[in-house]
Nucleic acid binder design. Sequence first.
DNA 1: CGGCGGGTTGATCACTGTCAAGACCGGTGG
DNA 2: CCACCGGTCTTGACAGTGATCAACCCGCCG
Lengths: 238, 238
Amino acid sequence: MPDKKITADCSSCTLAKRCLPSGIPVTDLYRFTNIVSTNQTFSTGDVLFKQGVKAANLYVVKTGAFKTQIINQFGDAHVSGFYLSGDIIGLESMAGGVTLNSSIAIEPSLACKISYRPLALLRREFPSLSDLAVKIYSQALATTQDTQNCLSIHSAPSRLAQFLILFSQRTNQLSYQQSDLHLNMSRQDMASHLGIAVETVSRSFTKLIDSGCITKTGRLIQIIDRTGLEKIAQCSSY
Amino acid sequence: MPDKKITADCSSCTLAKRCLPSGIPVTDLYRFTNIVSTNQTFSTGDVLFKQGVKAANLYVVKTGAFKTQIINQFGDAHVSGFYLSGDIIGLESMAGGVTLNSSIAIEPSLACKISYRPLALLRREFPSLSDLAVKIYSQALATTQDTQNCLSIHSAPSRLAQFLILFSQRTNQLSYQQSDLHLNMSRQDMASHLGIAVETVSRSFTKLIDSGCITKTGRLIQIIDRTGLEKIAQCSSY
DNA sequence: CGGCGGGTTGATCACTGTCAAGACCGGTGG
DNA sequence: CCACCGGTCTTGACAGTGATCAACCCGCCG
Protein backbone atom coordinates (compact mmCIF):
# COMPACT_ATOMS: atom_id res chain seq x y z
CA MET A 1 0.00 0.00 0.00
CA PRO A 2 2.21 2.84 -1.18
CA ASP A 3 0.53 6.19 -0.79
CA LYS A 4 -3.06 5.48 0.17
CA LYS A 5 -4.99 8.63 0.92
CA ILE A 6 -7.14 8.43 4.01
CA THR A 7 -9.87 11.02 3.71
CA ALA A 8 -11.38 10.27 7.10
CA ASP A 9 -10.75 7.75 9.81
CA CYS A 10 -13.34 5.38 11.16
CA SER A 11 -13.46 6.82 14.66
CA SER A 12 -15.19 9.93 13.37
CA CYS A 13 -17.65 8.09 11.11
CA THR A 14 -21.33 8.31 11.93
CA LEU A 15 -21.80 4.67 10.89
CA ALA A 16 -19.05 3.36 13.19
CA LYS A 17 -21.47 1.96 15.74
CA ARG A 18 -23.21 -0.21 13.12
CA CYS A 19 -20.16 -0.92 10.97
CA LEU A 20 -17.24 -3.32 11.23
CA PRO A 21 -15.16 -1.08 13.56
CA SER A 22 -17.67 -1.82 16.32
CA GLY A 23 -16.10 -5.27 16.47
CA ILE A 24 -12.80 -3.86 17.67
CA PRO A 25 -11.88 -2.21 20.99
CA VAL A 26 -11.77 1.57 20.57
CA THR A 27 -8.15 1.61 21.62
CA ASP A 28 -7.29 -0.56 18.62
CA LEU A 29 -9.43 1.31 16.14
CA TYR A 30 -6.37 2.66 14.34
CA ARG A 31 -5.64 -0.92 13.26
CA PHE A 32 -8.89 -0.86 11.39
CA THR A 33 -8.43 2.55 9.89
CA ASN A 34 -5.20 1.29 8.35
CA ILE A 35 -6.90 -1.31 6.18
CA VAL A 36 -9.78 0.80 4.93
CA SER A 37 -10.01 3.12 1.95
CA THR A 38 -12.72 5.42 3.15
CA ASN A 39 -15.24 7.55 1.31
CA GLN A 40 -14.58 6.55 -2.25
CA THR A 41 -16.94 8.49 -4.48
CA PHE A 42 -19.19 6.96 -7.14
CA SER A 43 -21.53 8.53 -9.67
CA THR A 44 -24.71 6.91 -10.87
CA GLY A 45 -23.79 3.96 -13.07
CA ASP A 46 -20.24 3.61 -11.76
CA VAL A 47 -19.15 0.04 -11.25
CA LEU A 48 -17.92 -1.08 -7.84
CA PHE A 49 -16.75 -4.42 -9.17
CA LYS A 50 -17.54 -6.62 -12.13
CA GLN A 51 -18.91 -10.13 -12.17
CA GLY A 52 -16.42 -12.93 -12.64
CA VAL A 53 -13.25 -11.18 -11.56
CA LYS A 54 -11.03 -11.88 -8.56
CA ALA A 55 -12.95 -11.12 -5.39
CA ALA A 56 -10.78 -9.10 -3.06
CA ASN A 57 -12.80 -6.49 -1.21
CA LEU A 58 -15.82 -5.73 0.88
CA TYR A 59 -17.56 -2.40 0.44
CA VAL A 60 -19.55 -0.60 3.09
CA VAL A 61 -22.12 1.85 1.78
CA LYS A 62 -21.75 5.15 3.58
CA THR A 63 -24.19 7.33 1.64
CA GLY A 64 -26.22 6.68 -1.51
CA ALA A 65 -27.25 3.31 -2.89
CA PHE A 66 -25.94 0.43 -4.98
CA LYS A 67 -27.41 -2.56 -6.76
CA THR A 68 -25.92 -5.95 -7.48
CA GLN A 69 -26.80 -7.76 -10.67
CA ILE A 70 -26.06 -11.11 -12.24
CA ILE A 71 -25.75 -11.51 -15.98
CA ASN A 72 -26.33 -14.96 -17.42
CA GLN A 73 -24.71 -16.37 -20.54
CA PHE A 74 -27.49 -14.95 -22.71
CA GLY A 75 -26.86 -11.43 -21.52
CA ASP A 76 -30.02 -11.10 -19.47
CA ALA A 77 -29.38 -9.13 -16.30
CA HIS A 78 -31.12 -9.80 -13.01
CA VAL A 79 -30.89 -7.32 -10.15
CA SER A 80 -30.21 -9.46 -7.10
CA GLY A 81 -30.16 -6.84 -4.39
CA PHE A 82 -30.12 -3.21 -3.29
CA TYR A 83 -27.68 -1.84 -0.74
CA LEU A 84 -28.21 1.24 1.35
CA SER A 85 -26.32 3.18 3.99
CA GLY A 86 -24.63 0.78 6.39
CA ASP A 87 -25.02 -2.28 4.16
CA ILE A 88 -22.05 -4.40 3.22
CA ILE A 89 -21.46 -5.50 -0.37
CA GLY A 90 -19.40 -8.50 -1.42
CA LEU A 91 -20.06 -10.97 1.39
CA GLU A 92 -21.25 -13.77 -0.90
CA SER A 93 -18.10 -13.80 -3.04
CA MET A 94 -15.72 -14.32 -0.12
CA ALA A 95 -15.68 -18.12 -0.22
CA GLY A 96 -15.27 -18.67 -3.95
CA GLY A 97 -12.58 -16.10 -4.64
CA VAL A 98 -14.50 -14.91 -7.70
CA THR A 99 -17.18 -12.23 -7.75
CA LEU A 100 -20.60 -13.78 -8.33
CA ASN A 101 -22.21 -10.53 -9.43
CA SER A 102 -21.53 -6.96 -10.47
CA SER A 103 -22.19 -3.99 -8.23
CA ILE A 104 -23.24 -0.62 -9.59
CA ALA A 105 -24.08 2.72 -8.00
CA ILE A 106 -27.68 3.82 -8.59
CA GLU A 107 -27.14 7.22 -6.97
CA PRO A 108 -24.15 9.46 -6.31
CA SER A 109 -22.64 7.51 -3.43
CA LEU A 110 -19.80 7.09 -0.98
CA ALA A 111 -18.41 3.68 -0.06
CA CYS A 112 -15.50 2.40 2.02
CA LYS A 113 -13.33 -0.40 0.66
CA ILE A 114 -11.91 -3.14 2.89
CA SER A 115 -9.65 -5.90 1.59
CA TYR A 116 -10.52 -9.46 2.59
CA ARG A 117 -7.02 -10.49 3.53
CA PRO A 118 -6.07 -7.95 6.21
CA LEU A 119 -9.63 -8.09 7.52
CA ALA A 120 -9.26 -11.85 8.02
CA LEU A 121 -6.05 -11.24 9.95
CA LEU A 122 -7.79 -8.74 12.21
CA ARG A 123 -10.66 -11.17 12.67
CA ARG A 124 -8.26 -13.85 13.82
CA GLU A 125 -6.79 -11.43 16.31
CA PHE A 126 -9.98 -9.95 17.76
CA PRO A 127 -12.66 -12.50 18.76
CA SER A 128 -15.22 -9.72 19.05
CA LEU A 129 -14.71 -8.97 15.36
CA SER A 130 -15.24 -12.64 14.60
CA ASP A 131 -18.52 -12.50 16.53
CA LEU A 132 -19.56 -9.44 14.60
CA ALA A 133 -18.75 -11.11 11.29
CA VAL A 134 -21.01 -14.02 12.16
CA LYS A 135 -23.75 -11.64 13.18
CA ILE A 136 -23.44 -9.63 9.97
CA TYR A 137 -23.50 -12.76 7.85
CA SER A 138 -26.47 -14.13 9.73
CA GLN A 139 -28.40 -10.92 9.15
CA ALA A 140 -27.43 -10.89 5.50
CA LEU A 141 -28.78 -14.42 5.16
CA ALA A 142 -32.01 -13.41 6.86
CA THR A 143 -32.36 -10.47 4.47
CA THR A 144 -31.89 -12.59 1.35
CA GLN A 145 -34.43 -15.06 2.68
CA ASP A 146 -36.88 -12.21 3.10
CA THR A 147 -36.25 -11.30 -0.51
CA GLN A 148 -36.76 -14.91 -1.47
CA ASN A 149 -40.13 -14.96 0.23
CA CYS A 150 -41.03 -11.77 -1.55
CA LEU A 151 -40.24 -13.36 -4.91
CA SER A 152 -42.34 -16.40 -4.15
CA ILE A 153 -45.48 -14.27 -3.85
CA HIS A 154 -47.73 -14.87 -6.83
CA SER A 155 -49.60 -11.68 -7.67
CA ALA A 156 -47.63 -8.66 -8.80
CA PRO A 157 -49.26 -6.04 -6.53
CA SER A 158 -48.70 -8.28 -3.51
CA ARG A 159 -45.08 -8.71 -4.46
CA LEU A 160 -44.62 -4.99 -4.83
CA ALA A 161 -46.35 -4.36 -1.50
CA GLN A 162 -44.05 -6.84 0.22
CA PHE A 163 -41.04 -5.20 -1.41
CA LEU A 164 -42.11 -1.80 -0.14
CA ILE A 165 -42.59 -3.17 3.37
CA LEU A 166 -39.17 -4.81 3.42
CA PHE A 167 -37.53 -1.76 1.92
CA SER A 168 -39.11 0.59 4.42
CA GLN A 169 -38.03 -1.66 7.27
CA ARG A 170 -34.46 -1.44 6.05
CA THR A 171 -34.40 2.30 5.48
CA ASN A 172 -36.11 3.08 8.74
CA GLN A 173 -34.28 0.69 11.02
CA LEU A 174 -33.74 3.48 13.49
CA SER A 175 -37.11 5.20 13.34
CA TYR A 176 -39.30 2.30 12.32
CA GLN A 177 -42.63 4.00 11.98
CA GLN A 178 -41.43 6.60 9.50
CA SER A 179 -43.66 6.35 6.45
CA ASP A 180 -41.76 8.32 3.81
CA LEU A 181 -39.83 6.16 1.45
CA HIS A 182 -37.44 7.15 -1.29
CA LEU A 183 -37.03 4.47 -3.93
CA ASN A 184 -33.52 5.06 -5.18
CA MET A 185 -33.74 2.64 -8.07
CA SER A 186 -35.35 2.90 -11.51
CA ARG A 187 -38.55 1.03 -12.38
CA GLN A 188 -36.38 -1.09 -14.63
CA ASP A 189 -34.24 -2.22 -11.71
CA MET A 190 -37.27 -2.84 -9.52
CA ALA A 191 -38.90 -4.90 -12.25
CA SER A 192 -35.79 -6.99 -12.74
CA HIS A 193 -35.40 -7.49 -9.02
CA LEU A 194 -39.03 -8.51 -8.54
CA GLY A 195 -39.11 -10.70 -11.63
CA ILE A 196 -41.98 -8.83 -13.30
CA ALA A 197 -42.27 -6.49 -16.29
CA VAL A 198 -41.79 -2.73 -15.98
CA GLU A 199 -45.33 -2.07 -17.07
CA THR A 200 -46.65 -4.39 -14.41
CA VAL A 201 -44.70 -2.46 -11.79
CA SER A 202 -46.47 0.72 -12.90
CA ARG A 203 -49.86 -0.93 -12.89
CA SER A 204 -49.24 -2.45 -9.47
CA PHE A 205 -48.35 0.96 -8.11
CA THR A 206 -51.63 2.40 -9.34
CA LYS A 207 -53.48 -0.50 -7.72
CA LEU A 208 -51.78 0.15 -4.39
CA ILE A 209 -52.61 3.84 -4.72
CA ASP A 210 -56.25 3.09 -5.62
CA SER A 211 -56.53 0.87 -2.57
CA GLY A 212 -55.51 3.84 -0.46
CA CYS A 213 -52.41 2.26 1.09
CA ILE A 214 -49.80 4.57 -0.40
CA THR A 215 -49.32 7.81 -2.26
CA LYS A 216 -46.63 8.43 -4.82
CA THR A 217 -44.90 11.33 -6.49
CA GLY A 218 -42.17 10.08 -8.79
CA ARG A 219 -39.83 7.91 -6.76
CA LEU A 220 -41.10 9.18 -3.43
CA ILE A 221 -43.56 6.86 -1.73
CA GLN A 222 -45.59 7.55 1.36
CA ILE A 223 -47.13 4.68 3.21
CA ILE A 224 -50.57 5.71 4.43
CA ASP A 225 -51.95 2.42 5.68
CA ARG A 226 -49.19 0.01 6.68
CA THR A 227 -51.47 -2.76 7.91
CA GLY A 228 -53.49 -2.52 4.73
CA LEU A 229 -50.30 -2.86 2.75
CA GLU A 230 -49.32 -5.93 4.75
CA LYS A 231 -52.74 -7.42 4.13
CA ILE A 232 -52.34 -6.94 0.40
CA ALA A 233 -48.85 -8.43 0.51
CA GLN A 234 -50.22 -11.65 1.97
CA CYS A 235 -53.52 -11.91 0.16
CA SER A 236 -52.85 -14.55 -2.47
CA SER A 237 -55.40 -13.22 -4.97
CA TYR A 238 -55.33 -9.47 -5.13
CA MET B 1 -24.80 -31.45 30.20
CA PRO B 2 -25.58 -34.32 32.52
CA ASP B 3 -25.64 -37.64 30.74
CA LYS B 4 -25.48 -36.89 27.05
CA LYS B 5 -25.13 -40.00 24.96
CA ILE B 6 -22.55 -39.74 22.21
CA THR B 7 -23.40 -42.28 19.57
CA ALA B 8 -20.38 -41.51 17.42
CA ASP B 9 -17.58 -38.99 17.59
CA CYS B 10 -16.70 -36.59 14.81
CA SER B 11 -13.30 -38.06 14.05
CA SER B 12 -14.93 -41.15 12.55
CA CYS B 13 -17.57 -39.26 10.58
CA THR B 14 -17.46 -39.45 6.80
CA LEU B 15 -18.53 -35.81 6.57
CA ALA B 16 -15.76 -34.55 8.86
CA LYS B 17 -13.68 -33.12 6.03
CA ARG B 18 -16.56 -30.93 4.83
CA CYS B 19 -18.10 -30.24 8.22
CA LEU B 20 -17.28 -27.89 11.06
CA PRO B 21 -14.64 -30.14 12.65
CA SER B 22 -12.39 -29.41 9.68
CA GLY B 23 -11.91 -25.97 11.23
CA ILE B 24 -10.13 -27.42 14.23
CA PRO B 25 -6.72 -29.09 14.52
CA VAL B 26 -7.13 -32.87 14.66
CA THR B 27 -5.42 -32.96 18.02
CA ASP B 28 -8.20 -30.77 19.45
CA LEU B 29 -11.05 -32.61 17.79
CA TYR B 30 -12.27 -33.97 21.11
CA ARG B 31 -13.15 -30.41 22.06
CA PHE B 32 -15.59 -30.42 19.21
CA THR B 33 -17.00 -33.82 19.91
CA ASN B 34 -17.91 -32.58 23.36
CA ILE B 35 -20.34 -29.94 22.13
CA VAL B 36 -22.13 -32.02 19.50
CA SER B 37 -25.12 -34.32 19.82
CA THR B 38 -24.45 -36.61 16.91
CA ASN B 39 -26.75 -38.71 14.77
CA GLN B 40 -30.12 -37.69 16.09
CA THR B 41 -32.77 -39.60 14.16
CA PHE B 42 -35.77 -38.02 12.46
CA SER B 43 -38.68 -39.56 10.61
CA THR B 44 -40.44 -37.89 7.71
CA GLY B 45 -42.42 -34.96 9.05
CA ASP B 46 -40.46 -34.65 12.30
CA VAL B 47 -39.74 -31.08 13.31
CA LEU B 48 -36.16 -29.99 13.90
CA PHE B 49 -37.23 -26.65 15.33
CA LYS B 50 -40.27 -24.43 15.12
CA GLN B 51 -40.53 -20.92 13.80
CA GLY B 52 -40.50 -18.11 16.37
CA VAL B 53 -38.88 -19.91 19.28
CA LYS B 54 -35.53 -19.25 20.90
CA ALA B 55 -32.76 -20.00 18.41
CA ALA B 56 -30.08 -22.06 20.10
CA ASN B 57 -28.66 -24.67 17.75
CA LEU B 58 -27.17 -25.39 14.39
CA TYR B 59 -27.96 -28.72 12.74
CA VAL B 60 -25.72 -30.50 10.27
CA VAL B 61 -27.52 -32.93 7.97
CA LYS B 62 -25.70 -36.23 7.98
CA THR B 63 -28.07 -38.37 5.91
CA GLY B 64 -31.52 -37.70 4.50
CA ALA B 65 -33.05 -34.32 3.77
CA PHE B 66 -34.83 -31.43 5.49
CA LYS B 67 -36.83 -28.42 4.39
CA THR B 68 -37.25 -25.03 6.03
CA GLN B 69 -40.52 -23.19 5.75
CA ILE B 70 -41.90 -19.85 6.79
CA ILE B 71 -45.51 -19.41 7.80
CA ASN B 72 -46.99 -15.93 7.52
CA GLN B 73 -49.73 -14.49 9.69
CA PHE B 74 -52.39 -15.87 7.36
CA GLY B 75 -51.14 -19.41 7.74
CA ASP B 76 -49.71 -19.75 4.26
CA ALA B 77 -46.51 -21.78 4.29
CA HIS B 78 -43.60 -21.11 1.96
CA VAL B 79 -40.78 -23.62 1.64
CA SER B 80 -37.64 -21.50 1.77
CA GLY B 81 -34.98 -24.14 1.29
CA PHE B 82 -33.91 -27.76 1.09
CA TYR B 83 -30.98 -29.16 3.02
CA LEU B 84 -29.04 -32.27 2.06
CA SER B 85 -26.11 -34.23 3.43
CA GLY B 86 -23.42 -31.85 4.65
CA ASP B 87 -25.67 -28.79 4.71
CA ILE B 88 -26.03 -26.68 7.83
CA ILE B 89 -29.44 -25.56 9.08
CA GLY B 90 -30.07 -22.59 11.32
CA LEU B 91 -27.41 -20.12 10.17
CA GLU B 92 -29.85 -17.30 9.47
CA SER B 93 -31.38 -17.30 12.95
CA MET B 94 -28.08 -16.81 14.75
CA ALA B 95 -28.13 -13.02 14.84
CA GLY B 96 -31.70 -12.43 15.95
CA GLY B 97 -31.92 -15.03 18.69
CA VAL B 98 -35.28 -16.19 17.36
CA THR B 99 -35.85 -18.84 14.70
CA LEU B 100 -37.03 -17.26 11.46
CA ASN B 101 -38.44 -20.49 10.05
CA SER B 102 -39.37 -24.05 10.88
CA SER B 103 -37.32 -27.03 9.81
CA ILE B 104 -38.87 -30.39 8.99
CA ALA B 105 -37.47 -33.73 7.83
CA ILE B 106 -38.72 -34.79 4.39
CA GLU B 107 -37.05 -38.22 4.61
CA PRO B 108 -35.89 -40.47 7.39
CA SER B 109 -32.76 -38.55 8.37
CA LEU B 110 -29.83 -38.18 10.70
CA ALA B 111 -28.65 -34.78 11.93
CA CYS B 112 -26.06 -33.53 14.42
CA LYS B 113 -26.98 -30.75 16.82
CA ILE B 114 -24.49 -28.05 17.84
CA SER B 115 -25.32 -25.31 20.31
CA TYR B 116 -24.48 -21.74 19.31
CA ARG B 117 -22.89 -20.75 22.59
CA PRO B 118 -20.11 -23.31 23.01
CA LEU B 119 -19.49 -23.14 19.26
CA ALA B 120 -18.89 -19.41 19.56
CA LEU B 121 -16.40 -20.04 22.35
CA LEU B 122 -14.53 -22.54 20.21
CA ARG B 123 -14.58 -20.09 17.33
CA ARG B 124 -13.00 -17.43 19.50
CA GLU B 125 -10.31 -19.90 20.45
CA PHE B 126 -9.49 -21.35 17.03
CA PRO B 127 -8.96 -18.78 14.25
CA SER B 128 -9.18 -21.52 11.64
CA LEU B 129 -12.71 -22.27 12.83
CA SER B 130 -13.53 -18.59 12.48
CA ASP B 131 -12.25 -18.71 8.90
CA LEU B 132 -14.36 -21.75 8.21
CA ALA B 133 -17.44 -20.06 9.64
CA VAL B 134 -16.98 -17.14 7.28
CA LYS B 135 -16.50 -19.50 4.37
CA ILE B 136 -19.61 -21.48 5.26
CA TYR B 137 -21.68 -18.33 5.63
CA SER B 138 -20.38 -16.96 2.38
CA GLN B 139 -21.33 -20.14 0.56
CA ALA B 140 -24.75 -20.16 2.20
CA LEU B 141 -25.31 -16.61 0.96
CA ALA B 142 -24.23 -17.61 -2.54
CA THR B 143 -26.68 -20.51 -2.45
CA THR B 144 -29.65 -18.39 -1.39
CA GLN B 145 -28.80 -15.89 -4.10
CA ASP B 146 -28.85 -18.72 -6.61
CA THR B 147 -32.29 -19.62 -5.33
CA GLN B 148 -33.32 -15.99 -5.62
CA ASN B 149 -32.26 -15.90 -9.25
CA CYS B 150 -34.20 -19.08 -9.83
CA LEU B 151 -37.35 -17.48 -8.40
CA SER B 152 -37.00 -14.42 -10.60
CA ILE B 153 -37.29 -16.52 -13.75
CA HIS B 154 -40.63 -15.89 -15.43
CA SER B 155 -41.80 -19.07 -17.12
CA ALA B 156 -42.55 -22.10 -15.02
CA PRO B 157 -40.64 -24.70 -17.08
CA SER B 158 -37.55 -22.46 -17.07
CA ARG B 159 -37.82 -22.08 -13.33
CA LEU B 160 -38.10 -25.81 -12.86
CA ALA B 161 -35.15 -26.40 -15.18
CA GLN B 162 -33.03 -23.97 -13.21
CA PHE B 163 -34.07 -25.63 -9.97
CA LEU B 164 -33.03 -29.03 -11.30
CA ILE B 165 -29.67 -27.66 -12.40
CA LEU B 166 -28.98 -26.06 -9.03
CA PHE B 167 -30.18 -29.14 -7.19
CA SER B 168 -28.02 -31.47 -9.24
CA GLN B 169 -25.01 -29.24 -8.65
CA ARG B 170 -25.56 -29.51 -4.93
CA THR B 171 -26.14 -33.25 -4.79
CA ASN B 172 -23.23 -34.02 -7.09
CA GLN B 173 -20.66 -31.66 -5.65
CA LEU B 174 -18.15 -34.49 -5.60
CA SER B 175 -18.92 -36.15 -8.92
CA TYR B 176 -20.30 -33.20 -10.82
CA GLN B 177 -21.26 -34.82 -14.08
CA GLN B 178 -23.48 -37.43 -12.51
CA SER B 179 -26.87 -37.15 -14.15
CA ASP B 180 -29.12 -39.16 -11.84
CA LEU B 181 -31.07 -37.03 -9.46
CA HIS B 182 -33.34 -38.05 -6.62
CA LEU B 183 -35.84 -35.35 -5.68
CA ASN B 184 -36.41 -35.99 -2.01
CA MET B 185 -39.28 -33.57 -1.66
CA SER B 186 -42.96 -33.81 -2.62
CA ARG B 187 -44.38 -31.91 -5.57
CA GLN B 188 -46.20 -29.82 -3.01
CA ASP B 189 -42.94 -28.72 -1.42
CA MET B 190 -41.34 -28.04 -4.79
CA ALA B 191 -44.33 -25.98 -5.86
CA SER B 192 -44.23 -23.91 -2.69
CA HIS B 193 -40.49 -23.41 -2.99
CA LEU B 194 -40.69 -22.34 -6.64
CA GLY B 195 -43.73 -20.17 -6.12
CA ILE B 196 -45.91 -22.00 -8.65
CA ALA B 197 -48.91 -24.34 -8.41
CA VAL B 198 -48.51 -28.10 -8.01
CA GLU B 199 -50.25 -28.74 -11.32
CA THR B 200 -47.88 -26.37 -13.07
CA VAL B 201 -44.94 -28.33 -11.68
CA SER B 202 -46.36 -31.47 -13.24
CA ARG B 203 -47.00 -29.79 -16.56
CA SER B 204 -43.52 -28.27 -16.56
CA PHE B 205 -42.03 -31.70 -15.99
CA THR B 206 -43.83 -33.11 -19.01
CA LYS B 207 -42.59 -30.17 -21.10
CA LEU B 208 -39.01 -30.85 -20.06
CA ILE B 209 -39.50 -34.52 -20.86
CA ASP B 210 -41.06 -33.72 -24.25
CA SER B 211 -38.11 -31.49 -25.07
CA GLY B 212 -35.85 -34.47 -24.51
CA CYS B 213 -33.74 -32.93 -21.73
CA ILE B 214 -34.74 -35.27 -18.92
CA THR B 215 -36.48 -38.53 -18.14
CA LYS B 216 -38.49 -39.17 -15.03
CA THR B 217 -39.82 -42.10 -13.06
CA GLY B 218 -41.57 -40.88 -9.94
CA ARG B 219 -39.15 -38.75 -7.98
CA LEU B 220 -36.12 -40.01 -9.84
CA ILE B 221 -34.90 -37.66 -12.56
CA GLN B 222 -32.24 -38.33 -15.13
CA ILE B 223 -30.68 -35.42 -16.96
CA ILE B 224 -30.12 -36.41 -20.58
CA ASP B 225 -29.14 -33.10 -22.10
CA ARG B 226 -27.65 -30.73 -19.56
CA THR B 227 -26.86 -27.92 -21.98
CA GLY B 228 -30.36 -28.14 -23.39
CA LEU B 229 -31.71 -27.84 -19.88
CA GLU B 230 -29.55 -24.79 -19.24
CA LYS B 231 -30.79 -23.26 -22.46
CA ILE B 232 -34.39 -23.74 -21.38
CA ALA B 233 -33.63 -22.30 -17.96
CA GLN B 234 -32.43 -19.08 -19.53
CA CYS B 235 -34.79 -18.76 -22.42
CA SER B 236 -37.26 -16.12 -21.29
CA SER B 237 -40.17 -17.42 -23.35
CA TYR B 238 -40.34 -21.17 -23.26
C1' DC C 1 -36.66 22.50 -31.35
C1' DG C 2 -36.00 17.48 -31.53
C1' DG C 3 -34.17 13.47 -29.58
C1' DC C 4 -33.81 10.46 -25.65
C1' DG C 5 -34.63 7.82 -21.48
C1' DG C 6 -37.87 6.97 -17.84
C1' DG C 7 -42.48 6.28 -16.70
C1' DT C 8 -47.47 5.44 -17.50
C1' DT C 9 -51.57 3.65 -19.93
C1' DG C 10 -54.12 0.75 -23.34
C1' DA C 11 -55.12 -3.63 -26.10
C1' DT C 12 -54.12 -8.27 -27.08
C1' DC C 13 -52.70 -12.99 -26.29
C1' DA C 14 -50.14 -16.67 -23.95
C1' DC C 15 -49.37 -18.62 -19.62
C1' DT C 16 -50.57 -20.25 -15.30
C1' DG C 17 -53.81 -20.64 -11.21
C1' DT C 18 -57.96 -22.85 -10.13
C1' DC C 19 -61.29 -26.39 -10.04
C1' DA C 20 -62.42 -31.01 -11.29
C1' DA C 21 -61.57 -35.68 -12.53
C1' DG C 22 -58.80 -39.48 -13.16
C1' DA C 23 -54.30 -42.38 -12.66
C1' DC C 24 -51.01 -44.44 -9.72
C1' DC C 25 -49.08 -46.38 -5.55
C1' DG C 26 -48.70 -48.26 -0.90
C1' DG C 27 -51.03 -49.83 3.09
C1' DT C 28 -54.85 -51.98 5.55
C1' DG C 29 -58.24 -55.27 6.32
C1' DG C 30 -61.30 -58.82 4.94
C1' DC D 1 -55.44 -62.71 -2.99
C1' DC D 2 -58.38 -58.98 -3.66
C1' DA D 3 -61.13 -54.79 -2.51
C1' DC D 4 -60.92 -50.59 -0.47
C1' DC D 5 -58.91 -46.29 0.81
C1' DG D 6 -55.81 -42.36 1.31
C1' DG D 7 -52.35 -39.71 -0.46
C1' DT D 8 -49.54 -38.18 -4.32
C1' DC D 9 -49.25 -37.10 -8.93
C1' DT D 10 -51.04 -36.15 -13.53
C1' DT D 11 -54.21 -34.43 -17.09
C1' DG D 12 -58.06 -31.55 -18.85
C1' DA D 13 -61.03 -27.22 -19.21
C1' DC D 14 -61.61 -22.56 -18.18
C1' DA D 15 -60.90 -17.90 -16.42
C1' DG D 16 -57.79 -14.36 -14.68
C1' DT D 17 -53.33 -12.32 -14.64
C1' DG D 18 -49.40 -10.48 -16.54
C1' DA D 19 -45.98 -10.21 -20.68
C1' DT D 20 -45.71 -8.04 -24.90
C1' DC D 21 -46.16 -4.48 -28.24
C1' DA D 22 -47.54 0.06 -29.01
C1' DA D 23 -48.61 4.77 -28.10
C1' DC D 24 -48.15 8.62 -25.24
C1' DC D 25 -46.48 11.92 -21.51
C1' DC D 26 -42.77 14.16 -19.23
C1' DG D 27 -38.29 16.17 -17.97
C1' DC D 28 -33.71 16.69 -19.55
C1' DC D 29 -30.07 17.94 -22.65
C1' DG D 30 -27.72 18.95 -26.78
